[in-house]
Design a protein around this nucleic acid. Structure first.
Lengths: 370, 370
DNA sequence: GGGCTAGGTGAATCTCCGA
DNA sequence: CTCGGAGATTCACCTAGCC
């Protein structure tokens, strides 16, 4: 009579496996991991070098692992690893996948096709993103994480609602996370150069693992890279399995995890930025929201200076176009001036009212809507 | 002999067409609109077609098939309207599509498949989102907009970078927009109940239209709904075409737009001119017109580099003769540099003044002369 | 040590025109 | 088509070095 080994015993717990995750996962038993975090290649398709305005070169992602023949190949690859992950995921487990607009739509559609059921799309809003140096698009300040359960009718999954609420100053954690890039001392470097071109910040993994797993759970990362998932899992007393193709990365991750003490980090460092860090109300928002009309006149308190509101929220004063502050300064021959104090609009009765009161009104209206 | 009507005359400008956008768009000429904003339905209606946890189980196939049927229908619908939109979009136009995690991944993947090339995914971060009442997920505070051009190799498209930068307090606009939901007086109501369940805020459309179109452009909205696109297009002096299936919504939108005052301001208040679309002034023109003298010295801002203006509008630096750009680059040991930023002349008081200001002066003088 | 400045850098689909 | 030159374009944060 054959003795059946418990599934979990056939898994190398707290280990890094060097190999292609699609093949390695085939050797795992079904339904054996509690949580998956996957940071697959994004297929960025960067064709030219990019220069900063000072002509220095941006060190972009040109790694071989991010190059695919075409979209079909990328889709087939994505379907294969997501399918393999789904097989080894427990029926009450969930998966996180991170990406950008280059790949996340294809990834999300394939996840749905495979039967995953999306719980949230979480936006990582970077506090210090790279600018758009050429001024031809909006500054790309986000990456997107898809959090999904294994199937639509899955009843159970782990979500530590209150842990997230505590991290967020006792308010519900939103699907937008304001976190800085991985830089400075946290960034793994070899001879002064970054060891991995896309190392994720530990704070990001902290939220992922803390929110959707429990101590003792098994966390799988099929694209282990520099091993951030292992580092944070260890700190939070979860087990981990990392799969990584490149032996060099395996070694980097192994060294890094060994140096990680098993301890809990400072929650305060990971807390969501509070509202006072949110963008303040700018003059542009008043124009957009029609608290002021394009073409409307603004006046100095003595009505001697008149300027026109433009669609781009600058003011037009004679043939000069500039900000409310700059034109207030110019009109008074001062080096600088606070335009919020200087400018007034005419109310329906023809009285002058400070534009600063509109800003208060805007804040009030938003507050009421909460 | 047949008289061919100009394409634009076959389009009902500033009108709402009642009908299915896929059919209606077939009657439009190719390449006839400058900008598209689409807020498609995302009711996937999958609730009753739930997938079993294990897809390999035989009796699970029926459910899986039903579900797949529904998604296929949604995909076919999405492919049809996005394809129809692409046909009527001008080759230098762009498209915006808004959605949530329920549909945006399928929409994005299909857009890529159809040849659209994504420029940004823009996150609308709601300042006042609805809470997650049951506490089982992160509070869903976002919707996603995909901004795309018609093809990957498309060279030209409209992006009013500086208008956006002015709106954002002189820093480049990010792909995350903090805007409140459409509430209060802006929300169209009938007998106290909201007239449309997903009415978008005008501030959102303000950014869409202002950033990626110019006054006089034609904006198409194939899912017109309550007509926010038409209202904002009218405010910003763009033309619009709305297509809407439901006659009740057509009527609501028509009434609403009629009540919107046509903007009476000067077009100059609506457009932000960038350096890129100003007439090019060459360095030679400044020399010819004697804004600079032959033999005059030009200086770097720290006066460490000095060159002489030649009659052929090149600079002489030691024994090197070349353009203002090339010598600025050589002097700094850089592969390239913008000479307009680098070089200065001495004014009568001996102060250094950027030669770029001379170019501005030249443009101004020419404009006055016109 | 502290404060200041200069320099470096990050998952980025990053120009346009004429010869 | 390619090639080359003109010329437009950046934000937050970290580190090293100097006073």
């Amino acid at each position: 009579m054959q003795v059946v080994t418990p599934d979990s015993c056939r898994l190398p717990i707290n280990a890094i496996i060097q190999g292609d995750c699609i093949q390695v996962l085939q050797m795992f038993p079904e339904q054996s991991v509690d949580l998956i975090f996957a940071d697959p290649p994004y297929n960025l398709q960067l064709r030219h070098a990019l220069l900063r305005p000072d002509q220095t070169v941006v060190d972009g992602v040109d790694d071989a692992w991010d190059r695919f023949e075409d979209v079909q190949e990328y889709d087939a690859f994505t379907r294969a690893w997501l399918g393999a992950c789904r097989r080894v995921l427990k029926d009450d487990g969930t998966i996180w996948v991170i990406g950008t607009y280059h790949n996340i739509f294809r990834v999300g559609a394939i996840m749905m096709d495979l039967g995953y059921w999306i719980l949230n799309d979480v936006i990582w809003h970077k506090t210090n993103p790279m600018p758009n140096f050429r001024g031809v698009r909006f500054q790309n300040a986000t990456e997107t994480l898809i959090w999904a359960k294994k199937s639509a009718d899955q009843k159970k999954y782990t979500f530590n609602y209150h842990a997230m609420k505590h991290l967020n100053e006792e308010k519900q954690m939103q699907n937008v996370w304001h976190l800085p890039l991985c830089t400075g001392a946290e960034r793994v470097k070899i001879n002064g150069k970054k060891a991995h071109s896309t190392q994720k910040p530990e704070a990001l993994l902290y939220r992922v693992i803390l929110s959707s797993s429990n101590p003792g759970d098994l966390v799988l990362d099929p694209f282990f890279g520099s091993g951030t998932t292992g580092v944070v899992a260890r700190r939070l007393k979860r087990h981990y399995i990392g799969i990584e193709l490149d032996p060099a990365y395996v070694e980097i991750a192994r060294t890094r995890i060994e140096k990680t003490p098993v301890s809990v980090c400072d929650d305060a460092m990971l807390a969501t930025r509070s509202k006072r860090d949110m963008p303040r109300v700018g003059f542009g928002q008043l124009v957009e929201a029609q608290y002021l009309r394009v073409g409307q006149n603004l006046y100095s308190s003595d009505r001697n200076v008149v300027a026109i509101v433009r669609a781009d929220s600058q003011l037009q004063w004679g043939n000069i176009t500039s900000s409310i502050h700059r034109i207030a300064a110019l009109a008074q021959h001062k080096p600088a001036f606070n335009g919020w104090e200087y400018w007034h609009y005419e109310d329906q009765a023809g009285r002058l009212v400070s534009i600063d009161s509109l800003r208060e009104q805007y804040r009030f209206d938003q507050g009421v809507a909460d």
